[in-house]
Design a protein around this nucleic acid. Structure first.
Lengths: 255, 255
DNA sequence: CCCTCTCACTGGCCTGACCAGTAAGCTCAC
DNA sequence: GTGAGCTTACTGGTCAGGCCAGTGAGAGGG
């Protein structure tokens, strides 16, 4: 190779990509805020100087990425949507589905995220946030009789309350995604379990112990308990041979 | 509400979405493997019974999601791409850019991921994996004189080696994404820093200390050092008022 | 056997058209 | 005046057909 300038590989840029970029940037910059409307397709055609199919390709991409939504017949044009983590969820689910991510890895990741969230919550929580958690636990307790859906909803609410208290939304988004992925892999087993009530009671017990540590502002304990309980709860779904990495995560009590 | 059946909200499904779904499923199921080719657009038109613009909209969506790539003139048709975390990175970057995710949260998240990876690596590593890490550190050391690009590449290689040893690819993918997001936010400052060599030396020092703990199989120490060093390195980019949650993460040495 | 050139076919892009929806604004009865 | 109903100008969804610049497998020449 001759010395001197280094060249980057170039790739032809499609017209529709240019349009996507422009609109994406306008949204990111804040020129287009959620709720605002894009001009109609035919109007965009004149503004971008491209044909309608090309403009439409761009809009379809934006739509599939959750940035806009267009309804047929709406005279106001496509709508800018508020940010949602749906795209992230989709991507992460795909990562799980066919990038050889095992159940053990998923649970390991949940243990890390959940443990960290609990630790941060224990150390940073306010009194209001604590009582918010207590309320969700109460709902869970009641929901054991009411039904699994209620219970599950309250469960999510608890983790959300913890996430809020941890002051870190990234944790919650990722945790939510991973949680969803785990559930989608074992949902059939849970749904058909004849001992669902027992499972719910066990889960409730776990959450209460974590809450106790958070109440006591004991970050290390909250993390340890959270991880330990997750492992107990899910260990049955992981083959014996893959449990090593999971045990390494609860192995906190070393000299 | 009358009791009985619960109905879900329905939304009209576009034709192009049906096509996207079918192809996505085929890929997820493994019917279409990376490297294989899709039929040509005109062939797909007849198979799906849709028009070319519609088929093209579907292909554009798949392309923008990183699932396929189509090159003009290629007689073999669009190519199925191997999985890449590019989509995830894009989504996460967007999350950071305009969902009120602060620099502090990003760094906090990195500390969690990196700390956990180091801990797992310390407890699970093999001898080969350890020496792989040592090699990347050596490269980093040499690269201080060679240049920042080399250094950065070796840096990535180190974290990758740690991730491999941690037996959890999710950690590494997420860490890589977050790392990229952080760098994209501060890259200008690093590039213009007049003391880049000093920064590199500091970074190298940090990595060496983590490596030492991993060598000693001391998981707790590896995690603690990793978090501490990340905080030291990046603290300057976080406003004083937002450092609370970060400090909570290194506050391990409690009674 | 290798090299070169051809050509059928590819994807990128465009024009123009039809249809089923939507909602603003008009009409009209009350 | 006011509300209900209808008209209408627009929207997005979809299609058919066409042109162009590329690509690469295979035909042909050396």
């Amino acid at each position: 190779m001759s010395d001197g300038a280094q060249f980057q590989q170039v790739s032809p840029v499609r017209l529709y990509q240019r349009i996507v970029e422009q609109i994406e940037q306008a949204i990111t910059r804040g020129d287009l805020k959620p709720g605002q409307r894009l001009p109609s397709e035919r109007e965009l055609v004149t503004q971008f100087g491209a044909s309608r199919p090309t403009v439409r390709e761009a809009l379809r991409v934006l739509e599939s990425n959750g940035l806009i939504r267009s309804r047929p017949g709406d005279p106001n044009g496509p709508e800018i949507l508020p940010f949602s983590s749906a795209g992230l969820t989709k991507e992460m689910t795909r990562l799980v589905q066919f990038d050889n991510v095992s159940m053990a890895e998923l649970i390991s990741f949940r243990m890390i995220l959940d443990g960290s969230a609990s630790m941060l919550a224990a150390r940073l929580r306010s009194e209001e946030e604590l009582s918010a958690m207590e309320r969700t636990i109460a709902v869970m307790s009641d929901a054991i009789e009411t039904g699994y859906d209620e219970f599950s909803k309250a469960d999510v609410a608890f983790h959300e309350a913890v996430a809020v208290a941890s002051r870190n939304s990234l944790i919650e988004v990722c945790n939510q995604v991973v949680r969803g992925a785990v559930l989608s892999l074992i949902s059939d087993k849970v749904a058909h379990a004849h001992n669902r009530k027992a499972l719910m009671r066990e889960s409730l017990q776990h959450h209460q112990e974590v809450l106790e540590a958070i109440r006591a502002r004991d970050g290390a304990a909250a993390a340890r308990i959270s991880r330990r309980k997750l492992l107990d709860y899910y260990a049955g779904y992981v083959p014996e041979s893959e449990q090593g990495p999971l045990l390494a995560l609860v192995d906190d009590e070393e000299p």
